[in-house]
Design a binder for these strands. Structure first.
Lengths: 189, 189
DNA sequence: ATGGTACGATACAGATCTGTATCGTTAGTA
DNA sequence: TACTAACGATACAGATCTGTATCGTACCAT
């Protein structure tokens, strides 16, 4: 059957969960090893350093994000509705206990130095989102698509951070309505 | 003249700068002592622990925020214009190299556990901002003032995080326009 | 059967961090 | 002048962290 998860997968899943919930600096390799039931030596056999494990997690999070982005917007017929659908899905996610914010914002907070490798990965991710938003905003007929995209990025990141901060009564519950207001204001329909 | 800064002040100013720029976990007490030119023993004579120093910084940051809030909105004649003025000033600040994000969002990222004292201080700060926004939104005639306030909080926090992440070409340069759009949409004038 | 590969367990090196203990010095004050 | 309070310098205790070294074992393919 070969359905057993490999030690590397086991390690990765545990690290991903701990990094996301508790932060990158707060989680040590000993904790990851103990929690996953995999030896620390095996960890270092698969990942040369803790930073490599962090980078692997960030790259996978980027893939996850785009997988979700595609699936949440696929059924929306227009660019306008695609953006709305994304923010509707985002709102549902960030008002869920499973959400601990944004892995990329979290790494940027913990490692603000621009030359840290993880910071670079995060920055590139946000730039791709910005580019994608800009394209959709343009196709939706916005007069200033780059400006609208930036405004939507602020909303998205604000929602992620609210979720990391608030346990209940989260301001992010209004992110979809806010996105709609910005879209309507920028498109003018 | 007695104008010399006291060792405690020297210590505090150095710690504030380092915490804000590099993060709380990344900055150790030895670094603070060395950078300030004050002995580590003197640090612990004034602050029982590093956490106490962090809390002192957060409380002072809260005061700073409200001082700025009052000064930036004082000359605006209406609640609507007060909110616009705040976001205009925020935009100017976050597009400046002196800005390293929001001390409260930063602490929430680095210490996500809700029972960490610093997290509590941060949460209370954000709640006060939310309350203040709600009051102004209500006085400005918004149909759903709490919702508008939440949307503005998302924008504000998104702008802070963008600044921590981006060095140039910062999406936060459009935060004032976004706030205006949300206000106009919610008030309907 | 045998050899290679992956993993577990453990100990450890070396760095770093928070916080304390000790002692010397300096400055202000009665 | 002598006392006191604050500070500096240094060493250190104890914990924690990343990463490595070593050795034993289990499994798998030839």
């Amino acid at each position: 059957m070969k359905s057993e998860t490999s030690p590397k997968d086991q390690l990765y899943q545990t690290a991903a969960k701990l990094f996301y919930q508790h932060g990158y600096r707060a989680v040590g390799v000993d904790t990851i090893a103990a929690e996953s039931g995999i030896s620390k030596m095996t960890l270092y056999r698969h990942y040369p350093s803790k930073d490599d494990l962090i980078i692997a997690y960030l790259k996978e999070s980027d893939d996850d994000f785009w997988r979700y982005f595609e699936s949440s917007t696929r059924n929306a017929p227009t660019p306008y509705e695609k953006l709305l659908a994304f923010f509707q899905g985002l709102q549902e996610y960030v008002t869920t206990p499973a959400c601990y914010g944004c892995p990329f914002l979290n790494i940027a907070s913990e490692y603000p130095e621009a030359d840290y490798p993880g910071h670079q990965v995060a920055l590139e991710h946000k730039q791709r989102v910005r580019t994608r938003f800009t394209r959709l905003a343009k196709d939706a007929g916005a007069a200033k698509p780059a400006m609208l995209a930036d405004q939507l990025v602020l909303l998205m990141d604000g929602a992620y951070m609210s979720t990391r901060m608030f346990e209940s009564d989260n301001p992010a519950r209004h992110v979809a309505a806010a996105a709609r207001a910005l879209l309507d204001s920028a498109i003018g329909n």
